[in-house]
Computed example of a mutant assay.
Amino acid sequence: MSFDNDERADLRASVRNLLSKHSDSGAVRRAITTEHGYDEALWARLCEQIGVAALATPEKYDGVGASLLEVHVVQEELGRTLTPSPMLGSAVLAAQTLLLSGDDDACARLLPTIAAGSVTALCWAGSEGWFRFGVTAAGETLSGTAQYVLGGDVADVLLVLTDDGLFEVSATADGVTRRRVPTMDPTRTLAEVTFDDVAARRLVSSPDLVDSIRTVALIALSAEQVGAASAVLEQTVEYTKSRKQFGRAIGSFQALKHRMADMYALVETARSMSYAAALSGTYEDAVIAKVYCSEALQSVAAEAIQLHGGIAITWEHDTQLYFKRAHGSAQLFGQPRDYLPLLNSEAWR
C-alpha cells in the first residue's frame, strides 16, 4: 500500500535514483570505513540536489517547509540501502529539537546551517539508557556523559538535554571530549560525549519537549526500519527465484512461499503502523510504531538469514548488515520492552 501523494512519490523517486547510483552495497561498505562513517560527497548531493536536510525546516530558516511525512519518505529510502548519513541525528533530531523548543533566536542561528547539511548532534541518553539524561546542569555549566549520540563525534554544534532544560555547546568548547564507540551495526555510528564543567548557552525549553522529541525520533526510526525490512524481503524473494535445489527454484516450494508471505505481511503492517504514527503525530502511536516496527524488522531479517542459508552470515553478503541494523535499531531510543508497560498502562486505555 502506498501513502504517497504526487509530491512524495516524486521525492521518493529522486532519493531512490540518487541512492541507486551512489549508495549501492560497495559504496555503503566503503563509507563505513571512512573517518566520518558516512560518504560526505553523497550527503552533499542529497542536501544540494534534493534538499533532504531542509525538508521539515520552515522557509524562514532557509528550509523547504515540508512536513514530517516527507522526512518519512527519505528515512524509508535511506533504510532500504542502509546508507550511513547525518539525516536522523542532525536533520531530524537536532532540527526538530530546535523547532519544538520554541527558541526563535536559536532557530535563526542554527537551522540554516543544519538545512545546508552541517551536522548538529543531540546529546540525550545516559548510561542507564534513553529514559535518564547523562548530563546534568548547574546553572549554565554542564557535567556528565551523554551516550549513544548520533553524529556526536563529527558534529559542529551539540544540543544537550538535561533535567534543567536544553543547552547549546560548541563541539570544540573547552571540557568537551568526544569519541566514537564500537557498535553492532557498522552502518550507524554512535559517540560518547563527555562534559567536564563546560560553559553552555541555555535555550528556551518547553515542559513537554522531551516527549515531543521522542515522538519524532520514534516515527523517523520506524520509517527507516520499514525501508530496511522492505529491501531485505525483496532481496530474499529474488534469491529464492534463482537458488535451485532438486532441479527447482527454492522459491517454488510451498513451505518457503508461506514464510515469505508472512514476511510480506509483517512489512506491510509495519508500514501501516509507521505511517499511522506519522499522520497522527501522537506519542501513543509513535510508541506502537517503535515496538511493532522494531520486532517486524528483526523477524524479517532473521527469516532472510534462514532463507539465504549459510551465505547470509558471511561478511561479503549484505543480509548480515540488515540483520545487524535490525538489532541495533531496536535498541535505539529505548528497547521495545521499555515501551511495553506504557501500552499496557491504564492511562492509554
Rank of each mutant, 00 (worst) to 15 (best):
G129Y: 03
L82F: 02
E168D: 04
V204C: 13
S206M: 14
E7D: 08
A66R: 12
A171E: 11
V149D: 00
V73H: 01
S222H: 09
S2C: 11
V300P: 01
D185S: 12
T314G: 10
T187M: 06
Q298K: 15
L266F: 12
D197G: 09
F3L: 12
I50Q: 03
Q235H: 12
A9G: 04
Q225G: 06
A27H: 13
T177M: 10
R202P: 02
L340A: 11
L209S: 06
R325Y: 01
H317W: 09
S20I: 05
D24I: 15
V291N: 04
Q335W: 08
E316V: 15
T177R: 11
V204Y: 10
L100D: 05
W348E: 03
H327S: 06
F195Y: 09
A347L: 06
A191R: 03
W315T: 15
G37M: 05
N5Q: 10
A330L: 04
T236P: 02
P341W: 06
G26R: 12
L266H: 09
D6F: 05
I114G: 02
A261K: 14
M1I: 12
T319A: 01
L142G: 05
V237D: 08
R109P: 06
V154C: 07
V232N: 01
E316M: 15
R188G: 04
A27Y: 06
A27E: 15
A146I: 06
D185M: 09
M273R: 11
A223V: 01
A296R: 08
A347T: 11
R271H: 15
L321F: 01
L19H: 01
H72W: 02
L221Q: 06
K257E: 07
A265S: 07
S143N: 07
C293D: 14
G151S: 08
G134R: 05
S90I: 00
A229Q: 00
G227P: 02
D39Y: 02
T187Y: 01
S222K: 10
S242M: 12
S205F: 04
M273L: 15
S345Q: 04
E284C: 08
V287D: 02
S143K: 00
Q335C: 11
D4A: 11
A27W: 08
A326P: 01
D39E: 05
T145R: 10
Y264F: 13
D211E: 15
L110K: 03
S252F: 00
D105S: 12
D153T: 10
A289L: 06
V64D: 14
T162A: 15
A91K: 04
A289E: 07
R178Y: 10
V73R: 10
T236M: 02
L78N: 02
A191D: 07
T145D: 00
A255E: 13
I311R: 11
D174H: 10
E77M: 00
S206N: 10
V237R: 09
G134H: 13
D104M: 11
L150T: 14
E128Y: 12
L150F: 09
